[in-house]
Design a protein around this nucleic acid. Structure first.
Lengths: 161, 161
DNA sequence: GTTACTGCAAACTTTTTGCACGACA
DNA sequence: TGTCGTGCAAAAAGTTTGCAGTAAC
C-alpha cells in the first residue's frame, strides 16, 4: 500500500475514462475494485481484492470482482503476474518492469526495470516468432523469510532433535 | 518430442536413482510419468501427461499423475514453468534456461540460456532478499500464430464486413 | 426507459485428500 | 510380509456462467 496517492488517483481516473470510452459503465463496484488494484503494490489475487473491497462495499460479491478484473485485463488496464501456480495475481503497474518472487512466502515485489535487451536471448527467441515483451523473474528468499530461517536454525541449535 | 533418446534415457535413469536414494519405490506408473515428462519439450500439463501415459498404461489414474509430478517436483527432478495462469506445466530441462511464451496459442519453447546477469536488476533484487535463480520470459507470437494472423487478414481483405 | 451490471446460485476446472486394495522391496 | 503406492471417489480451491432483479446512462 505504498503507491503514492497521486499515482492512485491518476490510475483510477484512467480506468474511469477507459470504461467510458469503451461504452462500459463505471459503476460503484467497478471503481472500488479498480481503486483497490491501483492502491496495492503487493500484486493481490481476486480473493485479496474481494476482502479489501468488502470493507468499503460490504454487499459486493466475489464474482463481480472476477468479472471486473477480467474487464480491466481485457482493456489492458491491469496485467496478470506470471507466476508458477495458485490464484491469479494482478498488477496495476503498466510500466515495463520485472519481479522479485519469494520462494518462501510468495510475496512479489516490483523491480523498476530499465529496458532489458539481452541480445543472445532476444535473437534465440526471434527464431520462434515475433518477440513482444521481455520480463525477468528473480526468484529468491525475501528478507523476512531469510530472518525466519535464521531464527529456526538458532532454535535448532538450542534443542537439537 | 524432439528430446534426443540418449537424453531421455539419462533423465529416466536419474529419476529411478533419485527415487531409490529417497527411499521411494520406482513403480511402473511413476517411471512412465517420469519418462513422459523427460520425452517432452512442450512443457505439458498434468492432463497432457495423463493422456499420453494412458496410451501405454491404460489403467493409470489422473491423481497418480498428480502425485507423481508432485513427488518429482519435491525431489527437484522437474520444475514448474512460471506462466500466467491455467493448468500447471512441467519442465524436465533442469539446465538454467529461459522461455518463449506464445500469447496466441500458449506454446512454450525453451531458450537455451547463457548465464544471465543484468547487474542493474540483480542489485535492485538484492534489496528485497537473497537472490536465487533469474529467468527471462519472452512473450510474443509464435511463427505459426503469426502465419494464421496474416491468413485471417488476407481473408478480411477479400470479404470485408 | 433501455440496456448493461450485479448478486445469487450452480456448474466447471484444476488439484488435493481419505480409504481400502494391490504391488513393490 | 510389511509398508508404500495406486485407484476410486469425494472434497477443496479457483473460476466461470445463467438468470432475474437493480442501477447506470
Amino acid at each position: 500500500m505504498v503507491v503514492p496517492q497521486q499515482e492512485v488517483d491518476r490510475r483510477v481516473a484512467l480506468y474511469a475514462q477507459a470504461l467510458r470510452e469503451g461504452g462500459l459503465r463505471s459503476t460503484h463496484q467497478r471503481m472500488e475494485v479498480a481503486r483497490e488494484i491501483a492502491m496495492s503494490d503487493t500484486h493481490p489475487d481476486v480473493e485479496a481484492i474481494y476482502r479489501a473491497v468488502r470493507q468499503r462495499v460490504p454487499t459486493i460479491s466475489l464474482d463481480t470482482v472476477y468479472r471486473t478484473v477480467g474487464t480491466l485485463e481485457r482493456m489492458g488496464l491491469v496485467e496478470r503476474v506470471p507466476i508458477c501456480s495458485g490464484a491469479t495475481r494482478y498488477d496495476a503497474n503498466l510500466e515495463h518492469h520485472h519481479h522479485f518472487v519469494c520462494t518462501g512466502c510468495g510475496i512479489i515485489r516490483d523491480l523498476a526495470g530499465a529496458a532489458f535487451e539481452e541480445l543472445e536471448i532476444t535473437e534465440a527467441a526471434a527464431g520462434f516468432g515475433r518477440v513482444g515483451q521481455i520480463t525477468v523473474q528473480v526468484r529468491g528468499l525475501c528478507n523476512e523469510c531469510c530472518g525466519q530461517e535464521q531464527h529456526q536454525e538458532e532454535q535448532h541449535r538450542e534443542e537439537p532433535s
